[in-house]
Nucleic acid binder design. Structure first.
Lengths: 107, 107
DNA sequence: CATCGATTGTAGTTTTGTTACAATATACGT
DNA sequence: ACGTATATTGTAACAAAACTACAATCGATG
């Protein structure tokens, strides 16, 4: 099986991938950021889980988790939370765009 | 930004994607298969969530969800559960392989 | 109609997540 | 040192989601 076929196999369900939303406990395990801290960032408007718009418990998709990881990086680098958030916001533009396009292409 | 760059952007965290494991309720919403039914398939050994190996509550990764979707398809086509499972097992070989390779490549 | 395969229902319990309060810590300017 | 702003953490009381272990149901086939 060649590379294109592999890719297609995944792309076919890229929209499935975008539906994989995990709980806050899982996010904490993946990223190493305590749940309490994640909720705090959310209070500040830096992270927006799917809860804001619907359900009762917070759910995080790939883009959210990615963002949390990036912010953590910046904090470790010595940036303030706001500065980290701003920097990451920029970087996320590219990630978002790429993700969305791939999701779109697979429909 | 060209296609390769987009792809790379995603591939960079393909291992993150593979860590996104969702709860049974979410799987049910995504696939349309009732939680009760998913647990039943698991009893029969057709689906293997992460619970068997670790935690206390079941978690499902992309491959698990994909498998559930495929089994549902086969059932709707009139196959028995065992037959569906067998057929899907074959198809999953390719999906597994592709997924693993992509995850690997991104390290 | 009895049996098998497949699914569904549910009570009672455990795990996970939520809010809303407050406490703590660190840094910075006056 | 003191006050202030930023950032994080703790926790009690409550709500949601998931778990197990029973049992019931339903359709097809011998």
């Amino acid at each position: 099986m060649n590379s294109n076929e592999e890719l297609k196999n995944i792309l076919l369900d890229f929209d499935l991938l975008s539906k994989l939303v995990v709980g806050i406990g899982e996010v904490s395990e993946i990223t190493g950021v305590p749940t309490r801290q994640i909720r705090y960032w959310e209070e500040k408007g830096i992270i927006i889980s799917s809860k804001e718009t619907e359900g009762t418990t917070r759910k995080y998709d790939y883009l959210n988790v990615k963002k949390i990881l990036l912010i953590k990086e910046q904090l470790d680098d010595g940036y303030t939370l706001d500065a980290a958030a701003k920097k990451v916001e920029e970087r996320m533009k590219n990630v978002n765009e790429a993700f969305m396009k791939l999701a779109q292409r697979s429909k």
